[in-house]
Amino acid sequence: MEWYLPVIWAGLIGTAVAMYVILDGFDLGIGILFPFTRKEAERDTMMNSVAPFWDGNETWLVLGGGGLWVAFPTAYAVIMPAFYLPVIGMLLGLVLRGVSFEFRWVAKPGHRLWDVAFAGGSIVAAFLQGTILGGLLQGVAVENRQYAGGPLDWLTPFSLFVGLAVVAGYALLGATWLVMRTSGPTADFARRAASPLLVAVLAAMAVVSLWTPVAVERIAERWFGTPNIYFLWPVPLLAALTGFATWHWLRSGRHGLPFAGAIVLFLLGYAGLVISNVPYLVPPTLTFWDTAAAPASQVFFLVGTVFLLPLVLGYTAFVYWVFRGKMAEGEGYH
C-alpha cells in the first residue's frame, strides 16, 4: 500500500475537523451564550448573526464523519461504537438546536421552548464533543480491529473536564464572533463575556497540556523527549502570547482581532493534540495505516476532492463575503 495516501487523507480529514471546530464552534458558542442574556432583541441579533451560515458550518461535521468512513473505515467502525452514547447525545443536541433556527422565528411570540432547545442543544453538543475528544485522548480498547470496551468507558473525570473546556472554548469563539459582527448592547454583552471565557480557556488548555503527558507515557515522550522538545517548545509559548494579545485586543476595543485571536488559540490547541497523537487515529493502537481504506477507494475519492474542496471553500468564502460587515442594530435576515 502506498504509505502516503493515508497521510494525505489524515491531513484532509484533520483539516475538515479543524474547519468544523472553528466554524460550528462559533455558532454553537452563540447557543452557549444564550442563557446569559435575557433580552429577546439581543438573542434575536445573536441568532441572526449566524443564521445564514450554520448549515454550511455543520456540513464540515458530515465531511469529518463521512470522510473518516471513506478513508479510514476501521477507525470509523471502532470510534462510533466506542462513543455510542455521547455521539448520539451530541447528534440529538444538534437536532434540537438546528431546528430552533427556524422554529424559533415561526413560533414567535411563543418561542420560549426554542430558546431553551437552542441553548440546551448547543451546550449538550459542545460538551459531548469535548468528552469524545477526552475519551479518544485517554485511549480506546480495541481487540481484533473492533471496539472491545464497555458503553461507559469514555466517562472519566478527564473526559468530563475536556467537555467543559470545549464548552468554554466554543463560547469564546461565539463571543468574539459577536464582538466582530454586532454592535450596540449585543456587542457590549459579548465583549464583557469574552474576557472571563478567555481566561477559562487558557487555564483549561494549560490543564490538558499538563494532564495528558502525566497520564499518558506516550504523550510525555512525544513532547519532552529529545530532540522533539527543541522543536516543540514554541507551541505553548505561542499559545500564551496569543492569549495575552487577545486579552489586550478585547480590552482596547478592537472588533475583528479578538475573533482572529480565538481562532489561532483553537488552532494551536488542535496542533498540540495532533502532535500528541500522530500517527494514531484510535489511540493507543490503530494508526492511519492500520485503518486505511483500500488504496483504490482513497484514490477515487481523492481525485474528486482535489477539484471539489477548493470549489466548496470558494463558495463558502463567497457566502461569508456577501453577508460581511457589522449587522445594523435590530437587523435580521428573516
Binding site: 456540513t59 458530515v62 465531511l63 463521512g66 470522510g67 468512513w69 471513506v70 478513508a71 473505515p73 476501521t74 470509523y76 467502525a77 481504506a293 483500500a294 483504490a296 477507494s297 477515487f300 475519492f301 474528486g304 476532492t305 471539489l308 474542496l309 466548496v312
Partner: peptide, 13 residues
C-alpha cells in the same frame, strides 16, 4: 466502507 463510503463522501462534497 471501501465501496460505498466514497459515494457518501461525494454526496457531501
Amino acid at each position: 466502507g471501501n465501496v460505498i463510503g466514497p459515494l457518501i463522501g461525494y454526496e457531501v462534497l
